[in-house]
Computed example of a mutant assay.
Amino acid sequence: MSGRADSDTDPETAGPETAVEQDEPAELPEQDEPAELPEQDDPAELPGQDDAGFRPEDARRARWTAAGTGAALTLAGLAAAVLRLARSAPALVPAAYATGAAVCAAAAVLGARGRTRRALWLLVGGAMVMAVGDQID
């Protein structure tokens, strides 16, 4: 093969003219602080936000969304329960819709008070109860 090798020759096998003297190990520079990164728009540093990066508008929007969705699902569940009562359906069907509507109403109240995570899970649970009532029908 012709060409140059990609790596240097090992000091033990190299001749005296290529031997590398290593009396002292190379010292690394002291680093007290990490290198600074280029400045970026950090969302936590924008005006109107707290340390975690949340804005008051986000919390307000989440409360309104949870309360509005809970109210809409409550009305839909109650309307479905009334419609199923008017028809000949098993009694379990309107009861499931009414129960799901009650759970969604509780989610709307919790969402309006700021407990949006719990409200989300109650909304999911209420919608599932209403879906079970629909499957029974």
Rank of each mutant, 00 (worst) to 15 (best):
A76Q: 10
A80W: 11
P25E: 05
P47F: 00
W64A: 15
I136K: 11
P38K: 00
M130Y: 03
D8S: 10
S7N: 13
A26H: 13
P56V: 01
A112T: 04
A71V: 14
R118A: 14
G133L: 03
E33I: 10
G53Q: 11
R63W: 01
A89L: 09
A119G: 11
D10I: 02
A5L: 14
D58K: 00
A66L: 01
A102L: 09
A96I: 01
T74D: 03
G48I: 00
D10N: 14
G133F: 03
E24F: 11
G15K: 12
A19L: 10
Q135K: 13
R84Q: 10
E30L: 05
Q31C: 05
D6E: 13
R113F: 06
D51H: 11
R117A: 12
P34R: 11
W121G: 10
A98R: 00
S88R: 15
R118L: 14
R113N: 05
A14F: 04
V93K: 01
P47C: 02
V129D: 07
V109H: 00
A107T: 07
G3S: 04
P16M: 11
Q40L: 10
P94W: 09
P90Q: 11
A105L: 09
R84H: 10
E57A: 10
D51C: 07
A59N: 08
T65G: 08
S2R: 08
P43T: 03
A95Y: 06
A72N: 03
A52G: 08
D51V: 12
L92K: 10
L92E: 15
C104L: 02
V93W: 02
A76T: 12
G126E: 06
S7C: 11
A44V: 04
V82L: 15
S88C: 07
Y97I: 00
G53P: 07
T13Y: 14
Q31E: 14
A101T: 01
E45I: 01
D10T: 06
A26D: 12
V82Q: 13
V109D: 00
Q49F: 14
A102R: 03
P43A: 02
L123I: 09
T74R: 03
S2N: 09
E57H: 10
W121D: 15
R55C: 04
R84I: 02
R84K: 10
A44K: 13
E45P: 03
A66G: 02
A107P: 02
T99R: 09
R4E: 08
G15V: 12
L28D: 11
A79I: 08
W121Q: 14
E57R: 11
L122M: 12
A72D: 03
R117M: 13
G125S: 06
T69A: 15
G126I: 05
T65I: 08
V132F: 07
A19H: 05
A101S: 10
T13C: 11
V132G: 01
L46G: 00
A86G: 09
L92I: 15
R84D: 09
L123C: 06
S88E: 13
S88N: 12
W121S: 15
L123T: 08
P56R: 04
R4G: 08
M128N: 14
W64M: 15
T116F: 04
A102M: 04
R60E: 13
V93T: 11
D51P: 08
L78M: 14
A95Q: 07
G70Y: 00
R84N: 08
R60G: 03
T74S: 03
P25M: 06
G3Y: 03
A67H: 00
G77K: 07
A131Q: 12
A107Y: 04
P25W: 04
